[in-house]
């Protein structure tokens, strides 16, 4: 058999009654990824796992302390606080952000005058990223003398310092997250563009209205992308760090009301020279995120539609 034929046979995934494996081609395509995994990712990941069982202050050599770090987690009140804050944040901000992103993507996908302008306007906030300017900007809106209070003042309501009040600080961060819905919106837009036009043409011929088209065509065909955004936004929200760091100056304040999990982990590791415990905390977070992701993948079998 010639090399060419061999190569062609690699590609016959679905031709036989049983799928043939494409190991060679697959590993070839995955070569850069394998190299990255083994050379760059694996070492530090495993090292962080090992450090999770040590007392490591970054300056002196790590010392094994068995399950001491796990014990500490059980009685660490600030950790429990951080878990509460993070779960609340994930459960509220992810659905809100995704709904906003999908809704606007649908709206902006259609032949609308000024489309490019709106798309850019809605995306612009996401460009600011973790810029230091964010902290200052956010205060201009939600601060005691910010825009929101000025507006409320006109209607006769006395506002408060939304960012610095422990009762409302987390809500402003949720708003901040929703405000940067640009990223998932762009992914939705790209996904919408992949839906073949013929489906809609056929549906229109059949007299289906917009809502039916949305339910029967858009949702199922967009479901891989919705699923992607859901999985990634959950992972992302669990790891939320920068915005809380920038807005609270790294403290998670006021009164730990915005103490995100990773912010606490960072404080332990870098501010308190407690990298062993921080590593253990990181692996607990990994377990939590992995559990959520696994549930997501399991549930996906029921609602995500692939064309393969």
């Amino acid at each position: 058999m010639s090399a060419l034929e061999k190569f062609q046979r690699l590609g016959t995934t679905r031709s036989g009654p049983r799928r043939k494996r494409d190991n060679k081609a697959a590993y070839l395509f995955l070569l850069p990824w394998f190299a990255g995994l083994t050379v760059i990712t694996a070492g530090p990941v495993v090292a962080s796992f090992v450090l999770g069982f040590t007392d490591y202050n970054l300056i002196q050599a790590p010392e094994f302390n068995g399950l001491e770090n796990v014990n500490r987690m059980l009685s660490d009140e600030r950790l429990h606080r951080a878990l509460g804050v993070t779960f609340l944040y994930v459960f509220v901000s992810v659905p809100l952000q995704l709904a906003a992103a999908l809704g606007l993507a649908m709206l902006l996908d259609r032949g609308l005058r000024g489309l490019a302008f709106y798309r850019s306007a809605f995306y612009l906030p996401s460009l600011l990223g973790s810029s230091v300017a964010i902290a200052v900007l956010w205060r201009q809106i939600f601060g005691a003398e910010g825009l929101l209070n000025q507006v409320l003042d006109v209607v006769g309501i006395t506002g408060r310092g939304w960012i610095s009040d422990p009762d409302t600080a987390l809500s402003t961060l949720i708003v901040l997250n929703v405000w940067t819905f640009g990223a998932p919106m762009v992914i939705f837009l790209a996904g919408l563009r992949q839906i073949p036009a013929m489906y809609y043409e056929a549906a229109a011929v059949d007299g289906a209205n917009r809502w039916t088209q949305f339910r029967r065509i858009t949702l199922p065909l967009l479901s891989p992308i919705i699923f992607f955004n859901l999985v990634l936004q959950i992972i992302h929200a669990f790891q939320s760090f920068t915005q809380a760091f920038v807005v609270s100056g790294g403290t998670g304040g006021p009164s730990d009301s915005t103490l995100f999990y990773t912010l606490y982990l960072y404080q332990r590791g870098f501010n308190n020279f407690d990298m062993g415990y921080a590593s253990a905390l990181a692996w607990l977070l990994l377990l939590i995120i992995a559990a959520f992701t696994a549930v997501n993948f399991w549930a996906a079998k029921r609602w995500v539609f692939y064309d393969d």
Binding site: W33, L37, I40, T41, G43, P44, V45, A47, S48, L51, L58, V231, I235, Q239, F241, T262, L265, Y266, G269, F270, M275, A278, S279, L281, A282, W283, L285, L286, I289, A290, T293
Partner: peptide
Amino acid sequence: ATMLGTIMLPIHVIIVPQYIL
């Protein structure tokens, strides 16, 4: 799963071993 798993660890515990590497 491994690939997805690699983005689940926060960078702050990866950065020190990675810097050493």
